[in-house]
């Protein structure tokens, strides 16, 4: 039997952790989507130096462990005089890390749009960026919704990295409650349930979007 008293006695802590995990996830999600789109466009724009820059970002970032990136923000930046609180450092690390994966997803989505679309739009006098905005990205979005959903779910789970640098997220408070109560199993089961509260609706939401977009053309 689960000891529910643990949940009730430490409800405040769980809730604070949950709120912070939610906040970190939402911020990192928005940020990584924006960075990811920019990096993806860098990678495919007809400008060589931007291609290299985009490729370097993706290859560099996605091939290092997330924890290390977060450490760079948390202990690396203070070395050059920029001091961030753990929550901010963790969220930024998560954002930068996830952006590399999102960039790849978006890039493949853009490449999946038939090239006649770009030709038709450019030949009508639209600029490259206008074409991206009005023609290519809206079509690419539909293609990338499912893989993007996976990245978002990964992002929520990966936000637990904040716990490592005391970022006041769910994982951090889980550790705290566990060390106060000397209970492990039950404490972390509740932590897991809180994560599910975030990830399952996300998963369902992506499925719903996918079905709705399939109906429109």
């Amino acid at each position: 039997m689960l000891r529910y008293s643990i949940l009730f006695d430490h409800w405040d802590m769980y809730l604070q952790g949950f709120t912070n995990t939610l906040k970190a996830s939402v911020l990192a999600l928005i940020g990584s989507l924006a960075i990811g789109i920019i990096i993806a466009i860098f990678r495919i724009a007809p400008i060589r130096p931007l291609n290299w820059l985009g490729a370097a970002y993706v290859e560099f970032i996605r091939n290092i462990p997330l924890v290390l990136i977060v450490f760079v923000f948390f202990v690396g930046l203070p070395a050059v005089g920029i001091r961030l609180d753990p929550f901010t450092a963790g969220t930024l690390g998560l954002m930068v890390y996830t952006a590399a994966f999102i960039a790849e997803v978006i890039r493949s989505g853009i490449l999946a749009v038939p090239k006649g679309q770009m030709e038709a739009a450019r030949s009508s006098g639209l600029t490259y960026l206008q074409t991206m905005r009005y023609i290519i990205l809206p079509q690419a979005i539909k293609i990338v919704i499912p893989p993007l959903g996976n990245q978002f779910i990964n992002l929520v789970k990966n936000s637990s990295v904040l716990g490592v640098i005391a970022g006041f997220d769910l994982m951090y408070f889980g550790d705290l409650i566990s060390s106060e109560t000397f209970v492990t199993f039950d404490v972390y089961i509740f932590v897991a349930l809180f994560y599910l509260v975030l990830t399952i609706p996300l998963s369902l939401g992506v499925g719903y979007l996918e079905r709705r977009l399939a109906k429109t053309r």
């Binding site: 038939p114 006649g116 679309q117 030709e119 038709a120 739009a121 030949s123 009508s124 023609i135 809206p138 079509q139 539909k142 429109t216 053309r217």
Partner: peptide
């Protein structure tokens, strides 16, 4: 103006 073999209308 340009007209293509495969129309290239914007499907969305």
């Amino acid at each position: 103006g340009m007209v293509f073999q495969h129309f290239n209308l914007y499907p969305h």
